[in-house]
Design a protein around this nucleic acid. Sequence first.
RNA 1: GCCGGAGUGGUGGAAUGGUAGACACGCACGACUCAAAAUCGUGUCUCGCAAGGGGUGAGGGUUCAAGUCCCUCCUCCGGCACCA
Length: 962
Amino acid sequence: MAKKQVYDHGKIEKKWQKKWETSKIYKTDDKTLKLGQKKFYVLDMFPYPSGEGLHVGHPKGYIATDVVSRMKRMSGFKVLHPMGWDAFGLPAEQFAIKNKTNPMIGVKKTVARFKKQVSIIGLDYDWDREINTTDPKYYKWTQWTFLKMLEAGLAYESHEPINWCPSCKTGLANEDVEDGKCERCGTPVEKKPLRQWVIKITKYADRLLNDLEALEWPEPIKDAQRNWIGRSEGAEVTFKTNTGVDISVFTTRVDTLFGVTYVVVAPESKLIAEFGNNIKNQKDVAEFIKNTSKISDIERTAADKPKNGLKLEGVVAINPANNEEVPVFIADYVLANYGTGAVMVVPAHDTRDYAFAKKYNLPIREVIIPERVDLRNPPRKGKETVERQNIHAIVKNKKGEFLCLKWNKFNWLTFPMGGVEKGEDVVEAARREVAEETGYKNLKLVKVLGGQVRAEYFAAHKDQNRTAFTTAVLFDLIDDEQGEITDENDCDVLWLSKEKVTTENMTHAEMDIWLKRLVDMNDMSFVDDGVLINSAKFTSLKSEEARGKIAKAYGKLVTKYKLRDWVFSRQRYWGEPIPVIHCAKCGVVPVPYKDLPVVLPKVKSYEPTGTGESPLANILSWVNVKCPKCKGPGKRETNTMPQWAGSSWYYLRYMDPKNDKALVDPKKEAFWSPVDFYVGGAEHAARHLIYARFWHKFLQDIGVVKYSEPFKKLQNVGLIMGEDGRKMSKRYGNVVNPDTIVETYGADTLRLYEMFMGPFDQEITWKTDNIIGVRRFLERVWRMHERVVDDKKTNAKKGVAKKDAPGLENATEILFNQTIKKVTDDINTLGFNTAISQMMILVNQLEKSEAIPKSVYLTLIKLLAPFAPHATEELWMLLGQKGSVHTSGWPEYDSKKLVLNTITVMVQVNGRVRDQFSAELGISKEEMEKLALDSKYIQDNFAGKTPARVIVVPNKIVNLVY
RNA sequence: GCCGGAGUGGUGGAAUGGUAGACACGCACGACUCAAAAUCGUGUCUCGCAAGGGGUGAGGGUUCAAGUCCCUCCUCCGGCACCA
């Protein structure tokens, strides 16, 4: 048949890449779009073409989308698989500064290099749809959308302090700050008041949160977004002050309102100025504010976070719940831009407040206590309920044993315990009870073990239900001196080791709490929900119930988000100009739509000015324009947009890349949206993926797009690490260049290897040594073509009828069908590694036969085509097939031929495999059981015995339980 | 601290609750060769000569049966973090 041919990957790959380019077989023709036609939009997160070039980690995602795209095309879908460039931003600008050339030139070069590197891998992009965010024809529509947002009141100017990177000399959005440092250069970020454009993304917070639900995204990414949006429900309560200015606070724990012992205001809060001369220590306050602003965020939020504050002398706030006057502080642990910028402080029930209160020696008032119901002595119906103040005395001797009482009458095991009598404090009461019940006199107080615990139980010795508020007091025993035991209860006094003092052994319902407090002696603030005490008419309510009632009585329920509005200005050159004009008379005037795009002018110096103005401010001929409204003198906005602007909607432009009348033709948008499959790095969870979702929702609101979400299914690519286990980076000298691998092993091998390495979404270490495995596989497939024969011949040889093609032995034919099914399923679920391994299994099997039916081989070639497009295309041609394998149909399997007729049944004894036997598929349960009992192992070991139980799993297992 | 994810041979990894280690790398031995490379074959979790036993981070539990489900803990990775 086919003549002998060597597998020369270099020659083959170059040849087909050229042919595909000229024949445009991957072009997505959309002249004939019909709604309802099967479509598949598969998208890579487009790259920032940096000068560094690619390493082998970069194309992993591109290869995956390529495999999916090719498989879908072969399956008859209309496929959109485009690529473009996200090219605005700092790296290109730094390049410009260094070389004093327009960044456009640098971008052109790096794009060309990038494209070349991508091309040799044989990806099936439709390059006619290539886009570039820095192309004025593209950013015209970025600017257009901004104007629409301005119109909708979503874009506004603000002068509040923002994150400022002193090294990049530009403002940053919250999302661009990591650990208090600039995400790009690592410089600690400062706060700087600056005029800037901000977008009200917070208005979409609820929709961004709720719509996550229906997305087929990895759960961790959805979680990261939920976290970032940070919805929290709470209450706003207003504290009146003696200054006439009210302080409004936000809290999620309004149930603790009666425990407020002071109020704290953020140093940056406007309230400070509003209090004015009421503040008696103005000088100190000013000093404190100055010092706080000097410290960068990174220090302010450093590891152990010391909380600094200062009392505002002369200012007192009134707790609306109890009309109590409480002092007002400023402190650095309160943020101005979350909630109301002021908090009510409840040291007893918040760890931060607790730390602050301890440091400044402020009162701590407990209003929530844990509660337990004693399940072993639950309250009984019909019995009187008595409230009691109790103590539990926990006494430890030098051996570390605890003093306990064994109650003979009730089978109880308790600490010495009892009620607090009039005029006694808890420590006195505890000493008294120990003396009365055990005789021990000499105790040294260690500490009171936190606050009270509420417990409900039945006190059998007094025949009444108790609601006890119990305090535990911890003592060390000084010596064994014992007085007389005066208590009349029949108890034995015991010393029990630590191991015996457990929740199981001890009768106290509060035991788990005591044990926890014995271990962690420091943290005494109780932050969980519980039962209210000291809270007037709300006392005895549970936290949750109390929140609703207290909020209603003294404030209102509100919802807050951690998400902040999007700081949209950059004081840099290389970005989309924000299309507005400032006019002395008319204020902010949008550039008329017909004048878009506002093209970025060429400048001599790209250096950032650092003054808060972008370098554009120096180009007077560009800056000075007529006001479009009054025709008077105006000035262009010189801030530019962040890099995230252009990438927030690029996926829409691929659908209609050359349209100069609209952002995208609605018909095309309706056909292609949403992106069916989106692949990229997990690092974009909180930025690109939030901005893009927001942008899309806005476009939906103004009728540009049809659906509410842009990306239906998202998949993260796992990083490829260097051979040393570290991130691939020039810094570590562990970079592997894909060009070298393609040169030595071929693009098909590289593709197969990257897909075979391991689970697609998992981080994995590159090992050049392992590549040889997939290369050998490819060579075996290649050599096999020499043994291909017409199906008629193999059928004749095996004596099978023609219709039973492909004329394989039964077992092989089953394997063949299984392979078609598994490869198809696995590509759909991104199990590329197991898809390849299944093909390897088939090939290993086919290797054993002398002749391979042509139809079988052609099917194998098709299955392999998405992974190794060049070699398979060549083999397709060598076997005399017409057209391209990539436009041939995707194979289908025979669902009747997925399982063998002869099965192997395992015989288990007590769940462990001991023997096996063969049987016909579909054998009855009874038959299986009988054969299992007849098996050699059972006969040898259990002859004559009847199993206690028999479990039969049809066609698989018989488990005999003896 | 909070929220996620993951721990399986020498290595990468595979296993709808049903034969743990598929597939591949590496290694060992063998065939071919004057020889080597390439290729092909056999073996390769572990203890044991064997029969047999043990084994999926640790410990418990559910089940006829657990890598898989539940609980406690340990380790590693990722995200968020003074968000009231």
